[in-house]
Design a protein around this nucleic acid. Structure first.
Lengths: 139, 139
DNA sequence: GTTGACTCCGTACTTAAGTACGGCAGTAAG
DNA sequence: CTTACTGCCGTACTTAAGTACGGAGTCAAC
């Protein structure tokens, strides 16, 4: 290995952080990961900092942030703006809570319907299907 | 209005159930809504049953079913297979519960991070950002 | 009997977050 | 020096659930 330590190819970077090369390139097109300068007639070299950045993206994704939100967070990081980052996270949290409410409503409804169906008085129209038709004289 | 009651144009159907004409056509291409026969040199006519079907689709969507799942449910409806429908709903419910778990985990993490950021000891690196970098000596 | 609205049909575009492909260039090993 | 990977770059495809567009045919009203 002739290269200096801490200088990776894109393939090495991808493998190190556990994504594919194509994903790195995609993040670059999205402006989330820099494109290191390409030496004339050579290939680009990446550093562990690039790896940290990709890992940051992946962590934020596990918290449900979109790539657009993550780009925003990364810009804030560069400026060390904790308040703004917290505000963004709080907004995202609001969205999460709304999705939670939706899912809880759905969970409750489905629980009831599945249970009603399980009561197995066949011969009667399926409660689930009836409910989806709007219940009352549905056809 | 020369047409028999209960015979609608696609536009009337769409307006009645609160979707666009394009959405109806899309459901037809997906096999969720029938295409009534087209009389030679005329236009297709729809019935209130078609309306009920579209409303069924929309209700199921509110419960988070995908169009593929809904097509499945509609096939079961035709055969009056309550058990199978309930099984499908139960599987869907499992998925909903998994998404709920994910979202609850995310909610908790974000709550903690937002609160830590709010403690406002500036001068220290942002807890949110640090956490996304994986916390320990991140650069 | 001609407007103007509506239908029909096919095709293409949208968003999100990638994945896949293909040709050409650079690099590593023998 | 040649072989076999990689890297580079542009383009196109993927899924889900639609939305948009454009031209030609129909229908209803004046």
């Amino acid at each position: 290995m002739r290269h200096r330590e801490g200088a990776w190819t894109i393939g090495r970077l991808a493998k190190t952080v556990g994504v594919t090369v194509e994903t790195i390139r995609f993040y670059q097109r999205r402006g989330l990961v820099r494109e290191p300068p390409r030496p004339p007639g050579g290939i680009r070299h990446y550093t562990p900092e690039d790896g940290a950045r990709v890992r940051f993206i992946k962590s934020a994704q596990r918290l449900g942030f979109s790539l657009d939100e993550i780009r925003h967070l990364l810009r804030l990081d560069e400026g060390m703006q904790c308040d703004a980052a917290a505000k963004l996270a709080a907004q995202h949290l609001d969205g999460v809570r709304m999705r939670l409410q939706d899912l809880r409503r759905i969970e409750t409804t489905l629980e009831i319907l599945v249970e009603q169906c399980g009561q197995g008085k066949e011969k009667v129209a399926c409660p689930l299907i009836m409910s989806l038709y709007g219940d009352k004289n549905y056809k």
